[in-house]
Design a protein around this nucleic acid. Structure first.
Lengths: 166, 166
DNA sequence: GATTTTAAGTCAGCCTTGTTGACTTTCCAA
DNA sequence: TTGGAAAGTCAACAAGGCTGACTTAAAATC
């Protein structure tokens, strides 16, 4: 109702509260699906979602420091440390003292860590691939556009920088 | 590389592992933004994300039963009960005995509950609206398509049914 | 009418993953 | 040599998941 006076003359029906609410609920339900497959795998092992996230980003940027990982994940060092310690103890992650700056620890996946990463991310990719294929390339472009616009500016910068090396 | 032999002749570059990985990371970072604003509001009160979710869906479907809410949220009744109890004690949610089936409790938001719901969802909508506006209607359509395709079939059905009343 | 099933709620205890705060160790750099 | 940054550690706590066992009330079924 009261659709008059639209600036620019374009239809802005996609900005109604109803449409926004549908988008909010879509995010909620889709995120559940998004995490379901890796969660199932991690259930059997002694790990959780926090371990998955750490493994993902260590694989993504081998040699990144603990501090850098902290920033990407958005948790405290105490929280990350607990997770990281178990991964190191179990031989999935290696922590190497920095050569230039020996205070820093550079994180790498071991062979076993790489194997688990592959298993987890492949499970996640299977679902993404199916969703992408079902929706088509144009929809995927829109999907990525909206998600980027939803990020906090700091995280968006990090996200975009991570893709620069490809 | 090796782009030969694409079935159907269409370009399938949007299905590469690299593109899928970008999508996965986009979901991760965007979800952080998605929850950030309500989380900030809830921080001041004694509530958390679980309370927000309960309030959201009670507002969405006034009078729904505890069991129905359980299914939507995908948690155990013990977990939901803890959250629900505080909301009822604090006078944000009302639990009415069913008229037809007196075993059932039908959940409604009180005035105060409605007020909090509005505050939370408006904060979330502000961000969504900005993202939608920045990306444009076509991108939004794609965004919704991909998210729907990512959901588990059961949840997708629930999601679609919830929109039927509008 | 008696029995079984269902919806809801409760109690106890556990786990993961987040938080603060205080403190130590290491080591670079001014 | 001293200050500060990076990392790690210990303790304590909270939210919000989980399982299991149990009660109550009411509906459904036999």
């Amino acid at each position: 109702m009261a659709d008059t006076g639209a600036p620019g003359g374009e239809t802005l029906l996609f900005l109604t509260d109803e449409q926004l609410r549908k988008g909010i609920e879509a995010m909620f339900f889709a995120y559940r699906g998004f995490t379901a497959d890796p969660d199932r795998i991690l259930d059997g092992l002694d790990y959780g979602r926090a371990h998955h996230r750490a493994i993902h980003f260590i694989n993504r940027q081998p040699g990144l420091t603990v501090n850098a990982l902290l920033n990407v994940l958005g948790v405290t060092k105490q929280s990350l440390n607990r997770v990281l310690r178990t991964l190191i103890e179990d031989g999935l992650v290696e922590s190497r003292v920095g050569r230039k700056d020996k205070r820093e620890r550079h994180l790498h996946l071991t062979e076993r860590g790489t194997a688990l990463e592959r298993e987890l991310s492949e499970a996640q990719r299977v679902r993404m691939r199916a969703a992408y294929r079902a929706a088509g390339p144009q929809a995927v472009a829109g999907f990525r556009q909206v998600l980027e616009a939803m990020m906090d500016p700091d995280l968006r910068r990090q996200y975009q920088m991570m893709g620069a090396g490809s």
